[in-house]
Simulated assay, not measured.
Amino acid sequence: MNKFSTFDEVVAERKRLQEDLNRQKGYLRSEFVEIREKIQPVAKVLSFFARSGNNGQSTAGTLLKAGSNLGIDLLIGQKLRKAGWIARLVLPLVMKFTAHKTIDAVRK
């Protein structure tokens, strides 16, 4: 921490700190804009899948859930071949339930 001997030094330090703060705010704004631009394609895909059908049911949500079920069955089923029967029964169900709740939460 600096020790100041005059009021003018305090004012100059405050001005320097304010300019530094404004520079950092500008940097953060530009970073947020860049991040927003990078995730825009993902947001478009999610918004496509989140659209609901004519009757209020989301066919895209159903497709996402079916895809997650298939992926869980294929990926986890291979990994659990040597596991016990309880793990083979319970783990895929928990993962599917979690995936469905996540898909529902993202769509809202």
Rank of each mutant, 00 (worst) to 15 (best):
N2C: 14
N2P: 14
N2T: 15
F4T: 01
S5W: 10
T6V: 04
F7I: 10
D8S: 09
V10M: 04
V11A: 08
E13W: 13
R14Y: 10
R14C: 09
R16S: 08
E19Q: 15
D20H: 11
L21T: 14
N22C: 15
N22E: 13
R23M: 05
K25Y: 12
R29Y: 12
R29L: 10
R29P: 08
E31N: 10
E31C: 11
F32E: 12
E34S: 04
E34N: 06
I35Q: 08
I39S: 00
I39F: 00
Q40F: 02
K44L: 09
V45L: 11
L46C: 05
F49E: 01
A50K: 06
R51N: 09
G53A: 06
N55P: 06
Q57L: 05
A60L: 12
T62A: 03
T62V: 03
L63V: 11
L64N: 07
G67I: 03
N69W: 12
D73C: 02
I76P: 00
I76K: 00
K79A: 04
L80S: 00
L80D: 00
R81L: 11
I86L: 13
A87W: 02
R88H: 01
L89F: 00
V90I: 04
L93N: 08
L93R: 08
V94P: 00
M95N: 01
K96L: 00
F97G: 08
F97T: 08
T98W: 13
A99M: 14
H100R: 15
H100M: 07
H100V: 12
K101F: 13
T102A: 12
D104S: 08
A105G: 03
V106N: 04
V106H: 06
R107M: 14
K108T: 15
